[in-house]
Amino acid sequence: MASQGTKRSYEQMETDGERQNATEIRASVGKMIDGIGRFYIQMCTELKLSDYEGRLIQNSLTIERMVLSAFDERRNKYLEEHPSAGKDPKKTGGPIYKRVDRKWMRELVLYDKEEIRRIWRQANNGDDATAGLTHMMIWHSNLNDTTYQRTRALVRTGMDPRMCSLMQGSTLPRRSGAAGAAVKGVGTMVMELIRMIKRGINDRNFWRGENGRKTRSAYERMCNILKGKFQTAAQRAMMDQVRESRNPGNAEIEDLIFLARSALILRGSVAHKSCLPACVYGPAVASGYDFEKEGYSLVGIDPFKLLQNSQVYSLIRPNENPAHKSQLVWMACNSAAFEDLRVLSFIRGTKVSPRGKLSTRGVQIASNENMDAMESSTLELRSRYWAIRTRSGGNTNQQRASAGQISVQPAFSVQRNLPFDKPTIMAAFTGNTEGRTSDMRAEIIRMMEGAKPEEMSFQGRGVFELSDERAANPIVPSFDMSNEGSYFFGDNAEEYDN
Rank of each mutant, 00 (worst) to 15 (best):
A2T: 06
A2N: 10
S3Y: 02
S3T: 05
G5A: 01
G5I: 07
K7D: 11
S9Q: 14
E11I: 08
M13E: 03
E14L: 00
D16L: 10
D16N: 14
E18W: 06
R19M: 10
N21G: 00
E24L: 00
R26I: 05
R26A: 01
A27C: 13
A27W: 01
D34Q: 02
G37K: 03
R38C: 13
R38S: 01
M43Q: 07
L47Y: 06
N59S: 06
S60R: 03
I63P: 00
R65I: 02
M66E: 07
L68S: 02
A70Q: 03
F71L: 03
F71N: 02
R74L: 14
Y78Q: 04
E80T: 01
S84V: 15
A85Y: 14
K91P: 05
R99A: 14
W104F: 02
R106H: 02
L108D: 10
L108I: 02
Y111S: 01
Y111W: 01
K113Q: 15
I116V: 15
R117M: 02
R118I: 01
R121F: 06
Q122Y: 09
N125L: 00
G126V: 01
T130C: 02
A131H: 01
A131S: 15
G132K: 13
I138S: 01
W139Y: 04
S141V: 08
S141Y: 13
N142K: 09
N144W: 11
N144R: 06
D145S: 10
D145R: 08
T146A: 14
Y148C: 15
Y148V: 08
Q149Y: 07
L154T: 03
V155M: 08
V155D: 03
R156P: 15
G158F: 01
P161T: 03
R162S: 14
C164W: 02
S165Y: 02
S165P: 01
G169N: 05
G169Q: 09
P173N: 00
S176L: 04
A178L: 00
A179Y: 10
A179V: 13
G180S: 03
A182E: 06
V183Y: 07
V183D: 07
K184C: 13
G185N: 04
G187Q: 13
G187C: 07
G187M: 08
V190F: 05
L193H: 06
I194V: 15
I197D: 08
N202K: 13
D203H: 07
D203A: 02
D203E: 08
F206L: 06
R208E: 09
G212W: 08
R213D: 09
R213A: 04
S217K: 13
R221W: 12
R221I: 05
M222C: 04
C223I: 12
N224P: 10
K227T: 12
F230C: 05
F230Y: 05
A237G: 00
M238L: 09
V242L: 01
N247P: 09
E252Q: 01
I257N: 05
I257W: 08
A260P: 12
A263S: 06
A263T: 04
G268W: 15
G268P: 03
V270F: 08
A271T: 02
H272A: 11
H272Q: 13
K273A: 09
S274L: 10
L276F: 12
P283I: 00
G288C: 13
G288P: 10
F291T: 08
F291L: 14
L298I: 05
L298M: 05
V299Y: 10
I301D: 13
L306Y: 11
L307K: 11
R317T: 07
N321L: 00
A323D: 14
K325R: 13
K325T: 15
K325I: 06
Q327N: 08
V329Y: 10
W330D: 02
M331F: 07
A332C: 11
S335D: 14
F338L: 14
F338M: 14
D340M: 11
L341I: 09
L341M: 08
R342M: 14
S353R: 01
S353M: 09
S353W: 05
K357P: 11
L358C: 08
T360D: 09
T360M: 06
G362Q: 11
I365Q: 08
I365M: 06
A366T: 09
A366M: 10
N370K: 03
M371S: 01
E375M: 10
S377N: 14
L381F: 05
R382M: 13
R391T: 04
G394D: 13
N395E: 07
T396Y: 02
Q398T: 14
Q399C: 05
A401C: 00
A403W: 12
I406D: 12
V408A: 14
V408G: 12
V408K: 13
Q409C: 05
V414D: 10
Q415E: 03
R416F: 12
P419L: 08
K422R: 14
T424W: 01
A427S: 14
G431V: 12
E434Q: 00
M440G: 05
R441F: 08
A442P: 04
E443N: 13
I445G: 09
I445K: 03
E449C: 04
A451C: 14
E455V: 03
F458M: 10
G462Q: 10
S467Y: 05
D468V: 15
E469P: 10
A472D: 12
P474M: 09
P474L: 14
I475H: 07
I475M: 06
P477H: 05
S478A: 02
D480E: 02
D480T: 01
D480M: 06
S482G: 09
N483F: 05
S486Q: 13
F488D: 11
F488N: 11
F488W: 11
D491W: 03
D491R: 02
D497T: 15
